[in-house]
């Protein structure tokens, strides 16, 4: 899922301080699961905002809502009958949701309430780690199911640099060396031979194309 973290409340206040009618909109998707933007976070942020405005002596409305997903138009459309009552929306969805809202409601300022970080999973409660950078050309088949692009600090494609020790990355001892993991895994799978074939320079065009990337699945298109 997409992992995000709540923005510091002072940063949110900074972007919203001049508005009088605010809607805090959460998303019931990924950001709920990573505890950054679900209904609970909506309540917390909205409550904090109201306290802030009250103490600032302002008469401000801060309403709360959470949509099933903000990355699908039928759900974002659920705001259509309400949005006119607000002069700003704080979206607690990932960057996709914020932008979908912004595209759908062109005359409304939409502000992000979370920092969208990466695609990852739940390591333990309250700890999420990255697994995928969405490069668009998966090489996991050759790397024992462990992605060197997401897991190696230098995105090395042909093995570890000389800096790792005890299986930890030279950049930070808290990070496992991605290539160490790949090596261990290949060894376990008896596929160490795959390691010695040099990997050619990667085709990054699926990752660093101009403008927003597209995924088209013809069979799924209507």
């Amino acid at each position: 899922m997409i992992i995000a973290e709540p923005k510091p409340i002072d940063e949110i206040i900074d972007s919203l301080k001049d508005f009088n009618r605010i809607l805090v909109a959460g998303c019931d998707g990924c950001v709920t699961v990573c505890e950054a933007g679900g209904m609970k976070e909506v309540e917390v942020v909205a409550s904090a905002l109201r306290i802030y405005f009250k103490q600032a002596g302002r008469a401000v409305t801060v309403d709360e809502i959470s949509l099933t997903r903000q990355c699908d138009r039928p759900y974002t459309a659920q705001l259509a009958d309400k949005i006119d009552q607000y002069d700003a929306v704080l979206s607690l969805a990932c960057g996709v949701g914020v932008q979908f809202l912004a595209e759908d409601y062109k005359n409304k300022p939409i502000f992000p309430g979370v920092n969208t970080c990466f695609m990852g999973g739940t390591e333990e409660k309250g700890l999420w780690t990255e697994r995928c950078q969405g490069c668009g050309k998966c090489i996991l088949a050759n790397t024992g199911g462990i992605c060197p692009i997401a897991r190696c600090s230098k995105r090395m494609l042909n093995g570890p640099c000389g800096g790792s020790s005890d299986g930890r990355c030279e950049v930070n001892k808290d990070i496992a060396c991605g290539w160490h993991l790949i090596y261990e895994r290949l060894k376990e799978l008896g596929q160490l031979d795959r390691f010695e074939t040099p990997t050619d320079p990667k085709d990054w065009n699926t990752s660093r194309d101009g403008g927003p990337r597209k995924v088209i699945k013809e069979v799924s298109r209507l």
């Binding site: 042909n158 093995g159 570890p160 640099c161 000389g162 800096g163 790792s164 020790s165 005890d166 299986g167 060396c177 160490h180 090596y183 261990e184 160490l192 390691f195 010695e196 074939t197 040099p198």
Partner: peptide, 23 residues
Amino acid sequence: AAENPFADPFEIRVSRLAKKVAA
């Protein structure tokens, strides 16, 4: 190219050299 004979995992260091030679 450079090579670190001491880095971890040690068992992979010769293979990695071979890979660079092959390249």
